[in-house]
Design a protein around this nucleic acid. Structure first.
Length: 307
DNA sequence: CTCGATCCCTGGACGC
DNA sequence: TGCGTCCAGGGATCGA
């Protein structure tokens, strides 16, 4: 599942491999994950891939201006999200086509840039100008670029569970389930803790470990679980450094307590119940009080319906 | 604003 | 061997 380090790895590989290549033509398979397939077919041919960047979990293929008739003349972008199972990489034109190959870009050096995605949870879109700017503005800060103060502000101004905040791409762009759990374990913060209840020291710690973990993972070219491969078809190695993710039932690396899995924000969350203390829940206290006094001031203390 | 539920989709794990 | 069932999960959407 490509998150920030995996996408960074693929983007760097593509930058090295295909920057400068001209897209001569494009062949589409299934297109239900593409915002505007007909625009892609019209706009991409004739453009050169100037460079490849990462933006959160997206890759931005910066494209040259186009001078073909009836096309957008400005520089523009092909936005690619790998979803859960997507991959994007150059192949020899003669290489056998993998199942679930949905986009083939024919490059000027004879190779093909192929997008393969069995589940089609990915996304592809051709964007330019104002539309592109608006799209990019939907996302929060890059965790490797944000300074400590911005990180703290972004977490504290929302009142959600910290796990949900780390996964929310409008808060921070690029963090997914693996690196959220790994960071929370390292910082000894329970995933269900409210972000607004974390103190400055905890947030400083979380900020530091998140950056360190992401940087280390990038050095190791990401985590290859399920079937992640980089642009060269090579697996990453960071999965060997996971401390909690996917380790339900196994001993905590710090204290040997059995790692547990719960659902937070609709996602599996692995944590150590000893190192990462559960937040105090205090939601039912009002109900208790009312019951003790024998009355029902709000009329909502029971879930029973009157009709 | 935030929550949970639901959907998208396929392959892999598992049970019989 | 071959079915059926369940599940994973990033993100969009919807109703509460």
């Amino acid at each position: 599942m490509p998150e920030l380090p995996e996408v960074e790895t693929v983007a760097r590989g593509l930058q090295r491999e295909i920057a400068g290549q001209k897209i001569l033509g494009i062949t589409l398979g299934k297109t239900d994950f593409i915002d505007n397939p007909e625009v892609i077919e019209r706009e991409l041919p004739g453009r050169t891939v100037l460079r490849v960047e990462r933006y959160g979990k997206f890759m931005l293929l910066r494209l040259s201006a186009n001078h073909a008739p009836n096309t957008n003349p400005e520089e523009s972008v092909l936005l690619v999200h790998l979803g859960m199972t997507g991959s994007l990489g150059p192949q020899a034109a003669a290489a056998p086509q993998r199942k679930h190959t949905h986009v083939i870009m024919h490059l000027s050096d004879g190779r093909e840039l192929r997008y393969v995605d069995p589940r089609r949870f990915g996304r592809m879109a051709y964007l330019a100008g104002e539309t592109l700017q608006r799209e990019l503005q939907r996302f929060g800060a890059d965790p490797l670029e944000a300074d400590l103060e911005e990180f703290i502000t972004r977490i504290q101004r929302r009142k959600s569970r910290i796990k949900a905040l780390l996964l929310d791409q409008s808060v921070l762009r690029g963090v997914g389930n693996i690196y959220a759990d790994e960071s929370l374990w390292k910082a000894k913060i329970h995933p269900a803790q409210l972000g607004s209840r974390l103190n400055r020291q905890q947030l400083k710690e979380l900020y530091g470990v998140l950056q360190a973990i992401l940087k280390k993972a990038i050095l190791l070219r990401g985590s290859s679980i399920s079937d992640f491969l980089d642009a060269d078809g090579e697996p990453g190695e960071y999965q060997q450094h996971h401390r909690v993710y996917g380790r339900e039932g196994k001993p905590c690396f710090r204290c040997k307590t059995t790692i547990k899995r719960i659902i937070v924000a609709g996602r599996s969350s692995y944590f150590c119940p000893n190192c990462q203390k559960a937040p105090r829940l205090r939601k039912r206290t009002r109900v208790k009080k009312l019951r003790k006094k024998g009355r029902n001031k709000t009329g909502r203390t029971s879930s029973r319906r009157s009709s």
